[in-house]
């Protein structure tokens, strides 16, 4: 993503950075999605689809366990371009332009080779940081499901590990069990971070 943006002229780049970054800093303005995906026939998506004749009765987007998880993923994607993304954008701007010229002389013929052999190795530290931040955020998704689908979500369709933790920790007050979940979550985060770091180390070789 950040790489694509960096290919553009400077003004447009700054503008697009704002567009993509804005959702993640906006607090819980994501609640607007409850209006878009409202199950009511007056909800935006339903009304539009009914009008176009694609569906003939309103879809219960946020109550039907078939759709909930997809919607939650969609919303968290919308919010996912956070600190890591900014770090990528900044990292890309520091790369020495002469390296690309040198690369062209040495026989790099297209964009993809340029990305793999010059751009990515140059921004490894930022990649590392961005990866860590986004993994951490992704595994910590919990508020979004509660806000969109309620708690617990119908049929536990969008029950994330964080929801599970809150359920046991703060509703059933079984702190021991909740701590056990937290330890597993912690291990999962560390392991996935290590795996990604291993992968990033091999980039460009």
């Amino acid at each position: 993503m950040a790489w694509l943006i960096n290919e553009l002229p400077r003004r447009i780049r700054a503008f697009l950075t704002i567009i993509f970054y804005a959702p993640s800093i906006s607090g819980n303005a994501y609640l607007i999605f409850t209006l878009i995906f409202s199950s009511d026939p007056y909800g935006y998506l339903n009304a539009k689809l009914l009008d176009l004749g694609i569906i003939d009765s309103p879809v219960l987007w946020l109550q039907d366990s078939k759709y909930i998880l997809t919607i939650v993923i969609l919303v968290s994607l919308w919010m996912s371009l956070g600190v890591g993304f900014l770090s990528f954008v900044a990292g890309l701007q520091t790369i020495d332009k002469t390296q690309y010229e040198a690369g062209a002389i040495d026989g790099i013929s297209n964009r993809w080779q340029e990305l793999w052999y010059i751009t990515l190795p140059n921004m490894k530290p930022q990649l590392m940081f961005g990866a860590v931040m986004s993994i951490t955020n992704a595994l910590g998704v919990g508020d979004i499901t509660v806000a969109l689908a309620g708690f617990p979500s119908p049929n536990y369709a969008a029950h994330t590990i964080v929801n599970h933790l809150n359920d046991y920790g703060f509703i059933r007050m079984e702190m021991g069990y909740a701590s056990a979940i937290a330890v597993i979550l912690f291990a999962a985060m560390l392991i996935s971070n290590r795996l990604v770091q291993k992968f990033i180390k091999r980039v460009g070789t």
Binding site: T17, I18, A22, A29, L31, A90, Q126, V132
Partner: peptide
């Protein structure tokens, strides 16, 4: 929603260049 959305975004827009400058050193 608009109120909660606009305030942080406006602050970010005003201070954008500082953020990018910091982020260049954020590498791990």
């Amino acid at each position: 929603s608009l109120i909660t959305f606009l305030i942080p975004v406006i602050i970010y827009i005003l201070m954008q260049s500082n953020v990018i400058e910091t982020m260049t050193t954020s590498g791990m």
